[in-house]
Each structure stands twice: as C-alpha cells, then as structure tokens.
Amino acid sequence: MSRSDVLVDADWVQAHLDDPKVVIVEVDEDTSAYDKNHIRNAVRIDWRKDLQDPVRRDFVDQEGFEKLLSAKGIGNDDTVVLYGGNNNWFASYAYWYFKLYGHESVKLLDGGRKKWELDSRDLVAEVPERAATQYKAKAQDTSIRAFRDDVVAAIGNLNLVDVRSPDEFSGKLLAPAHLPQEQSQRPGHVPSARNIPWSKNANDDGTFKSDEELTRLYTDENVDLAKDTIAYCRIGERSALTWFVLHELLGQSNVKNYDGSWTEYGSLVGVPIELGAGK
C-alpha cells in the first residue's frame, strides 16, 4: 500500500469527474453542506442517518451497508473517492467504514472540501442521478475496529493514541470547541495514552504531511511502531483519520480505531481515567 493507492489530489479528481467507474462521495459533519454545493457528480453519504443503526449505538449492519451503497449507485468494482469538510474527519470515518465492510478501491481526496474551496475550484448544487446497483458487502473486518475491552486491556501494553486536542486530553474540554460542552461523561483520557492530536497529521489546508514527517511525529512521541496501536477520540471520526495515517499511509499492520471512543470510555463504570496533560 502506498500513498498514491489511498490518496488523490484535486487535479486527479477534476480529471475523473465524468469517469463512470469513479464515484465521488461527500461525507460531512455538517450534513447540510452538500445541499448548498458539492463537487460535480458527487453523491452524499450522511454519517449520522446512513451509517448508524437507528436504535442501538452501533453501525448499520452488513445488509444495511449493502442497501445504502446499492441505493447510492456504488458498485463493488467502483473506485470510491471520499471527501468532506472539517479536514476530512468524517470522510476518513467513512473510508474506515468502507474498509470495515471490505470495499476494494477507496481513496481520500487530500485536503477534502476545504482545500478544494481554498483553491477556488468549482462547486455545484445539482444532484447527480446514479442507477442503483446490487452491492455485496463483506463481513466486518474487526482487525481494524477496537472495542472497549480491547482498550482496557491495552492500558500499559499497547500503543494508545488519543487524537483529541490537548485540552480535551487533559480534561479541560469535553468536546471539540465548535460544539457545546455539556456532556455526561467524565473528562480525561485512558491511562498510558499518548496525546497526538489528529491535527498534527495535517497542514493548515487539510492536506496530509509527508510520510517522513508523519513517521517522525509518532516516533518522537514514543509510539513504538513495532507494537499494535489503538486510536481513539470522542466518537471515532478524528481517530479514523489517524487510523488512515498509520494504517493506510504508513502501512502499519496492526492499527485499530476505537469508535466508542471517549463518549463510551468516559461513561464506563470503574475503568481507570487519568487527568492532566500528557507525560
């Protein structure tokens, strides 16, 4: 796996806007952003309505994912290019999701919607029509998904990477600062977790740093790349971006994203929590 297999730039997307085997998909935290405008021929996936179970806290199941992709007109042999706002947080989350259900060819647009906008590239309001497909998903690949017991077992043993901002890690904030702070869970972080904010992976315009810079970022923070790693954040979307960096860009084999993340861990009874800045 190399960078060009998983990441494309805006020029590549521009050149493939009318390619029938390439499906461009916008996934945003602000799910109404697509309504205003989007890259021409891009379809939308709503991370909240389309990707979550409507009742339990979990993902849509294999069958639900098949239905979703079939309805969106995405075929098993299509190349899916994901992009979104907020530096591709939710596009990375969707990328991880496509991999979880075994989609072969998925790529991220480097810099996402922000870079596209800052470059003043065209966005349109017109929604494309795509014929429905008969999509077949694979069973969930749980080698890339961590659950709460995996996290508790990893304390002091595996690499735990908390990708939230330093103020969320220390317990000063409970959510990213563009969201209201009222939350029920306890503040803090999982003991032994290293605080390596997701933002250190990216430049201001949202593009990823070079492989050399990224490797240095993790080794300088004492992440032992020979060990397995679990990344988490608040709800698993920012840590999906860090998962993308470690697993897809840097080719680390044993990296899991803990999608329960702090909203689950910080609400568990009896688990250890550490407060304060990183050591």
Binding site: G85, S165, P166, L173, H178, Q181, S199
Partner: peptide
C-alpha cells in the same frame, strides 16, 4: 476559522456561514 490553544495547537475549526460568521464553545 481555526481555534488554536495557548500552545498554538489546533482545537477546532469551522467554516464561516453565508454571512461570514463563526462560533466556538471554548474554555
């Protein structure tokens, strides 16, 4: 608009609204 903490580290980012506005819930 990005919000950076005292150490210059990224804390949040929002797109501006159609009227150029933004808001953060900080500490």
């Amino acid at each position: 608009v990005r919000l950076l903490d005292e150490g210059g580290e990224f804390t949040a980012e929002v797109p501006t609204s159609a009227t150029g506005q933004f808001r953060f819930f900080a500490a």
